[in-house]
Amino acid sequence: MDRLRVLCFAGMYGLALVAELARVVVRAHNRPLATPILTAVGWVVQAAYLARLAWVQQKLPVTTLFESMLVLSWILAGIALYLMLRSPKNAAVGLFALPIALGLLIYAGLDSSTRGSGWSDWRGRVAFWGTVHGVFLLAGAVSTCLAFVAGLMYLAQLNRLKRKQSPARGISLPSLEQSERLNRGAIMFAFPLLTLGLFIGVILALASRGDGGVRLALNDPKVLSGAVMWLVFAALLNARFRPSMRGRRVVVLTMVAFAFLVFAWVGVDLLRLPTGHGGPRVSARGPQDAGRTP
């Protein structure tokens, strides 16, 4: 039933994406409204679903990978909707943001392993700090996705300008300055959130070792990819103060950070890599045993 509901609002985002793609070829009377309206409908339905989930469970829906992906896609779709409505040029923001929201929903809806126990079985302080850890990483992931989307828009616009293509042709894109500012702002937000999230995660893992909790090794793929992602973000933050690193190089680094995020969130599970992250079990081997929180 959950899968059906998820695919229901994923369908709305899918239609919104189709409407956005149609802008390249079709010029209809109410064209600029189709994508925001469809996205808004999907977003409201998803908000209602998440609210119901929180009400039934009596806690924030961020305790499993399934829930986290749903919340992440919901926030991303909301930000995309805001940018679509704010854009003075009717820029095709949806073309870059909606595929990510859609991808998250499809993965969450189709892969039943994302519904693992996570830390939903935990109690007391561990459960509280587990939730804080998850919320920070989720917010960091939102910022990373946003930085990635802004980076893609920047590259597309830069490519068009360098090739001397007419702005009147093809899709409308945000200005280079706007994409660069969005990318920079998202990176600035992402770094402290990820730092705090990872820090709490490490403390949590150390604290719960004694009572049969999470056993995380330094070479755990989730730990490794998380650490590398954090390093890339540190480099990105540093790049902000280095003039030579502005523009395309920052965008490329953002993409690397995003790749590590995707790997940490879904790659480890997709590749069935052994990880002890996210669940109360001592030794997690494969997706059925391990909780799959990020």
């Binding site: 300008l161 007419s166 702005p167 009147a168 894109l173 280079l176 300055e177 500012r181």
Partner: peptide, 21 residues
Amino acid sequence: DQGRVSVASVAVDLAREVFDT
């Protein structure tokens, strides 16, 4: 009405593609 058709006015379209404010 998309895109300008004089060499001088194309500059405005280009400026809007690069800058936001």
